[in-house]
Design a protein around this nucleic acid. Structure first.
Lengths: 193, 193
DNA sequence: TGCATTAGAATGAACGTTCTATCTAATGAA
DNA sequence: TTCATTAGATAGAACGTTCATTCTAATGCA
């Protein structure tokens, strides 16, 4: 997840992610990050200019990483339906594999603590634009109902998010069959006549 | 929204909600709440035992209020499809009417800052259980695919949440026709063959 | 007068950040 | 090879600020 960072930065980012999921932003103090990551505050400030910067760096790193993973599935050859399925499978797969990253992005993508330009850059490096394009294609080919493709992508993403949240809260399981069915539900709802 | 509270409590809760949406929990200080609500910290502590209690009270109040509004639509007479449509229409309607409440619940329903028993009580007073029941009925009557009704409700709620978020972020509009179409997309996806 | 309510100063803890001292390892002149 | 020099990295105490909460005195209604 944090391969492009040095050892200290990696430890700080990993620790911060772990604490912030367990305890909220306000309880994620620099002292606690220092203690748990075993990096002194002096060193933390040597590599990061502020607490805000750590959180924003975390945000960028996760969105970029997840974005690449999803795009790999989305951009491979195949019919629209195959790419659709692979794309959403990867969205769920990465959420299941790195639930902390998923939860963090979920909580902070609408937060004022993340700078607008970081959100913007993250959006560009993410998987939203290619997915929007796929949906637009599906509409051109009359596979999908005519509507705002971006809105439909958001709705489907919402479905996936809440399915994963249900799973992470222990209110449902997340089997391969269940995932396939959920994706099918989305496809069927979007389909024309 | 806060009819069951006295004037001071109402002012404090309304102000807290407004600040927390604009600025995050960590920037929502008691001093700022006092200043904006024009209630001194002394009075705030006369009516609330702590900052945590304010936030948790806020959570309870909003979920209860929204829950009643949605249930009114859900429980009225009609076919399953009519009740389905009215239910989701009300979920969106209340979100559009009180976007701050919507955003607050969205941000804090998964937060460790809200006590578990408050979440539990809120869930019971909310609209989830009746909606689950409606979905179970739809499955019994073979209108919907056989799957976990709770999971499908969560997925549909996710779709609504992300549609409203798109709207609140200015990335799409939220017309009556658009809402109707979104609900239809959900129905169609859930339907049997 | 008596009592609930209010205001806002006071308090002490906790916070993000900075500072200073120390450590480590690489460099290069002798 | 040796050792002074250097630059970066690290540790943790110290700093000033801000925070949630408490306290004390004043207010206003019964």
């Amino acid at each position: 997840m944090f391969e492009s960072y040095n050892k200290v930065q990696k430890a700080v980012l990993e620790t911060t992610l772990s604490i912030i999921i367990r305890k909220e932003l306000q309880a994620t103090s620099m002292a606690l990050i220092a203690k748990e990551s075993k990096v002194s505050t002096g060193s933390i400030y040597h590599y990061f200019s502020s607490k805000e910067e750590i959180i924003n760096e975390l945000y960028t790193a996760i969105v970029t990483y997840n974005g690449q993973f999803v795009q790999e599935g989305l951009n491979r050859e195949g019919t629209i339906r195959e790419r659709f399925t692979r794309g959403w499978e990867r969205v769920i797969e990465i959420s299941r594999q790195y639930p902390e990253g998923f939860q963090f992005i979920e909580q902070y993508s609408f937060s004022p603590y993340i700078y607008e330009d970081v959100k913007q850059k993250a959006y560009n490096g993410g998987w939203c634009a290619p997915m929007n394009k796929l949906y637009a294609e599906a509409m051109e080919q009359k596979l999908f109902r005519a509507m705002d493709p971006k809105l439909l992508v958001q709705m489907h993403y919402g479905s996936m998010v809440y399915m994963v949240k249900s799973y992470l809260q222990g209110n449902s399981d997340l089997t391969d069959a269940g995932i396939r069915e959920a994706i099918e539900v989305c496809w069927q709802g979007a389909s024309r006549g």
